[in-house]
């Protein structure tokens, strides 16, 4: 039987990563050494780059050991035009560029679920990882996961609906444990994946990192952003979200990244931001919206701070109680007006 787990993680989440890398870099990273000299990052790490209307999303999926299959769901801001193996050492190189350090001020901004079957838009196999891109509402994606033998965590209905209201695109990454073992992968080894997403509305899913965790559990992750200009980000201030780097990317970094597999798209110049997440799962109720246009107007909807127009948001009981209270106010108002008119006539 397949191992459950569609619970934990997501994007950034799934992950810590392991990639083939040279010994000197391995030493420099002071990371954990995996099979075949692979280096495992100590934290979940993701690169989200936005260039000419395309979001490049590079993350890694960690092999957690055992046979069978286990997987991760990642909400995406749009339909990917491509999903391929990620650069071999891109995430490690970024960690070398920006060691975790002080806090910076964030750039200030001026500022239903479907029930039909999930539509499979794309499938691709990368090493022992089966990736499926789905279009559907929360229920249909949950049904897809159930049909494929996975059990979702109890917070999944709310989290999937939270995402599906903004974008019905999800990426399911399923590790074939048996295949990973045959490939010599050990616990902690990962597979880097590069997702290319044309979108005018870039955002990085963060809330999904808390999926399957208890409210007091910790979520730790590093998110690197590469944008043409200094981006405006939302939210600005949240417990556990810290901007630790915001500066023009060095030429050496960009040259190094560009020389990695599949990373030829890295521009000649860019702004590098790094955000650290060290949050309780309960506090991580938002995503990261990015406005790289220079207009300083990241979307509060994309950040998950407000619901999209046309979504309910209130539970049925609250609606009922609210209606009843409104009725009470109307009746009371009518009674008082009547009383007032009687006493003055």
């Amino acid at each position: 039987m397949r191992r459950l787990l569609f619970t934990t993680i997501g994007v950034v989440a799934a992950l810590v990563m392991a990639v083939q890398v040279g010994p000197s870099l391995a030493h420099a990273c002071a990371g954990l050494i995996g099979s075949n000299g692979a280096v495992n990052l100590g934290r979940t790490t993701t690169l989200a780059a936005y260039e000419d209307g395309v979001e490049h999303y590079v993350t890694a999926f960690q092999f957690q050991g055992g046979g069978g299959e286990f997987g991760t769901l990642i909400p995406l801001p749009g339909v990917p035009s491509n999903v391929e193996r990620g650069g071999a050492w891109t995430l490690q190189r970024l960690q070398l560029e920006v060691p975790s350090s002080e806090r910076l001020e964030l750039a200030s901004a001026g500022f239903s679920a479907l029930t039909a079957d999930a539509e499979v838009l794309l499938t691709v196999r990368i090493d022992a990882l089966d990736i499926t891109v789905l279009r559907g509402g929360g229920p249909s994606v949950a049904a897809w996961a159930t049909d494929h033998g996975f059990r979702l965590s109890p917070d999944a209905p709310e989290v999937l609906e939270f995402y599906a209201e903004r974008s019905p695109i999800f990426l399911a990454a399923v590790f074939d444990g048996d295949a990973a073992a045959e490939r010599g992968q050990v616990i902690g080894d990962g597979t880097p994946v590069h997702i290319t997403i044309p979108t005018e509305n870039p955002w990085v899913p963060l809330r999904i990192l808390a999926l399957g965790k208890q409210p007091d559990d910790r979520v730790e992750a590093d998110v690197f952003l590469l944008t043409a200009e200094r981006p405006a980000l939302l939210p600005l201030y949240k417990p556990g979200l810290t901007l630790v780097h915001s500066d023009a990317a060095t030429q050496s970094l960009l040259d190094d990244l560009r020389s990695d597999d599949g990373m030829g798209w890295v521009p000649e110049s860019a702004w590098l931001s790094k955000l650290q997440i060290d949050s309780s799962a309960g506090d991580l109720s938002y995503d990261l919206a990015i406005d790289a246009s220079g207009l300083s107007a990241p979307s509060p909807v994309a950040a998950g701070l407000v619901a999209p127009l046309g979504t309910a948001g209130l539970p049925e009981t609250a609606t009922l109680a609210g209606g009843a209270i409104l009725l009470l106010v109307l009746i009371s108002s009518l009674a008082l007006r009547r009383s007032s008119s009687t006493s003055t006539s």
Binding site: T317, L320, A321, G323, A324, I325, L327, L328, I331, S332, L334, A335, L336, R338, S339, T342
Partner: peptide, 19 residues
């Protein structure tokens, strides 16, 4: 004399509505 005497009824409506 419709006035304030409606309030208990209104409260009852509320209580019924929210179960």
């Amino acid at each position: 004399m419709l006035r304030l005497s409606l309030l208990p009824f209104a409260f009852a409506v509320v209580l019924l509505a929210i179960g």
